[in-house]
Design a protein around this nucleic acid. Structure first.
Lengths: 243, 243
DNA sequence: CCATCTTTGTGCACGCGTTCACAAAGACAT
DNA sequence: ATGTCTTTGTGAACGCGTGCACAAAGATGG
């Protein structure tokens, strides 16, 4: 995966572990699929398989929300969809602004997954005056000058940053000053924010680098086994990989 | 953050913890910045601040790679850049294919962070015949029929999936069958792969939902404090949020 | 009403990751 | 050469997350 939370020292919000919160959207997606196929109930085993997790973990996760299952039967799909939605706060409307309408910002604006779950794109904002007024995903882009007014008028508390790295921190500061308290950051920079503001980051480059590490390891082990030359007593890779 | 690794039961590759591997790209980025500003050495405290982590954690992370620091002085920036790059496998060339050239795929193709670090976009692939030949980010899109041939000809081992959810699993299967062993998945689906294949996923919708959870919590606590009405003895939120 | 069978909810143990705190190591000045 | 001062590298303790394994709960059939 490509996300990571920024510090937050395991602040177990209201007794629900962070790790569980991170999985709830996964369960919700699987349940929505079942709901659309009119499946009335589901066992922890089935749902866990659909979500790609351990069934014991899933049951423990749900136990933090309450006892919503029926022993011998399983979980009521519709009821569980409602409970998880409510727990995640998806029963209310979340206006979101996207700042930085380049390739990525445009992709985000067009992404259907937002609107489908309580999230509404309230505005698209870009620093380039040439972009102003130009419609992206049916929404006219507005200039950065309007940022504070847009936040205030729409009661926006969640901001998405898709600007170049250099612009991210200044944009972040303005968002926070205007009242935004949750930020999803796509720019490859470490953002500094005051206490009380949540930042999550998505970094495409980092994900690829992690994959490359494991890929190299696989190739290295393979090569080492094939060559079978003197290797460290603990099966260590050679200090320099052969080209 | 928006990433998460898919199972891999804490496989500590060659003694380097997963958590450490995930932070190495972060350190590398901070170090690259210092290198460009010709800073010769850096202390764990300074570098940790730049990367947004605890300094003790950074030192322990580096200790897994070896003793590359000098006590009383700090770390040599250039040397550390080289060591981390080598460890992550970035000193070699990684050809990558991107499958699904919609808004997101195009954004990824244009993303500069790939080329800058040993990653090379070997091909863009889409199922739509109308897209074939059309250049995106200077690279002509090729049709899915060519997928297997492209993988083989270029020796591609890393694939990026940016297709709609429904197409992801079939595409994944074809990639794996053709020899790809690492996949970065942007489609909102749980991918099933054989052992030995790494999958990381980036899910925009999930990240927003996690932010919404914390946002609701903040608003709820705030409202509860303001109203100050009978609340649970453990400071629990009311079962149903007021509209 | 009782027995059986399925599935939940959870007590418990284990392991990874984080953080503290300090000893060892080396630079630097005198 | 010796002492002082800075900064690394790591031993140890702690806490979170995971998974096993089972008891409790309820459905279902006779």
């Amino acid at each position: 995966m490509a996300t990571g939370r920024t510090h937050r020292p395991a602040t177990r919000s209201r007794g629900i572990p962070e790790a569980t919160v991170a999985r709830l959207p996964l369960y919700l997606r699987a349940l929505t699929g079942l709901s659309e196929r009119s499946v009335p109930t589901v066992s922890s085993e089935e749902l866990a398989a659909a979500a790609g997790v351990n069934s014991a973990k899933l049951r423990k996760d749900f136990s933090y929300l309450g006892s919503y299952g029926t022993r011998g039967v399983g979980y009521d799909v519709e009821y569980l969809v409602y409970q998880i939605s409510r727990e995640l706060g998806l029963t209310q409307d979340w206006p979101v602004v996207i700042v930085g309408i380049g390739n990525l910002g445009a992709a985000l604006a067009n992404y259907g997954g937002f609107a489908s779950r309580g999230f509404r794109v309230a505005a698209l904002i870009d620093a380039d005056p040439a972009m102003a007024g130009k419609p992206v995903a049916g929404i006219p882009v507005q200039h950065s000058d309007e940022l504070e007014k847009i936040i205030a008028d729409n009661g926006v508390s969640i901001g998405v940053i898709a600007t170049p790295a250099g612009a991210a921190q200044p944009v972040c500061d303005r968002l926070v000053a205007a009242g935004v308290t949750s930020i999803l950051n796509f720019a490859p920079t470490v953002l500094t924010v005051p206490d009380g503001v949540d930042v999550r980051k998505v970094d495409l480059s980092i994900e690829l680098q992690i994959l490359a590490f494991h890929e190299q390891r696989k190739a290295g082990e393979h090569a080492a086994a094939a060559a079978d030359e003197r290797k460290g007593p603990d099966g260590e890779l050679p200090a320099v990989m052969p080209a």
